[in-house]
Simulated scan of single mutants.
Amino acid sequence: MTEEARFRIRPLEGPDVDRLAEIAAGLEQAPQWPRSVYDSLLENAGRERIVLVAEDHGSGFVAGFVVARLIPPEAELESIAVAGEFQRRGVARELFSALAGVLGRTGVGEIMLEVRAGSGAALGLYRSLGFTEEGRRRGYYADPVEDAVLMRLPLK
Results as ranks from 00 to 15, higher is better:
Phe7Leu: 05
Glu133Met: 09
Ser97Leu: 15
Val67Asn: 05
Leu113Gln: 10
Leu123Pro: 02
Val66Lys: 03
Glu4Asp: 06
Ala92Glu: 00
Gly58Arg: 10
Pro11Ile: 14
Leu123Phe: 02
Glu76His: 13
Arg69Met: 04
Gly139Ile: 08
Asp147Val: 13
Asp16Ile: 06
Val108Asn: 08
Arg116Met: 02
Pro154Trp: 15
Ala83Glu: 15
Asn44Leu: 13
Arg136Gln: 12
Thr2Arg: 14
Phe96Leu: 08
Pro72Trp: 00
His57Pro: 01
Leu103Thr: 11
Met151Arg: 13
Gly90Gln: 01
Leu52Asp: 03
Gly26Tyr: 15
Leu129Cys: 04
Arg47Lys: 12
Glu146Thr: 02
Gly101Glu: 10
Gly64Ser: 01
Asp147Asn: 02
Ala142Cys: 07
Ser119His: 12
Ala100Ile: 11
Ser97Cys: 07
Gly14Lys: 14
Ala83Thr: 07
Ile80Gly: 03
Ala45Cys: 13
Arg69Lys: 12
Ala25Val: 01
Met151Asn: 12
Gly120Cys: 00
Arg105Trp: 02
Val62Trp: 15
Arg10Asn: 10
Leu113Ala: 09
Gly135Cys: 14
Leu42Tyr: 14
Ala121Met: 00
Glu48Lys: 07
Glu74Gln: 14
Gly84Thr: 07
Leu42Pro: 02
Glu146Ser: 07
Met151Asp: 12
Ala21Gly: 08
Ala81Arg: 01
Val17Glu: 06
Asp16His: 12
Gly26Asp: 12
Val108Cys: 12
Leu123Trp: 07
Phe131Val: 01
Arg93His: 03
Glu76Phe: 11
Ser79Cys: 13
Pro34Gly: 03
Ser40His: 10
Arg93Val: 06
Asp16Ala: 03
Ala122Trp: 00
Asp16Val: 07
Arg93Ser: 07
Pro72Val: 02
Arg105Tyr: 06
Glu114Tyr: 13
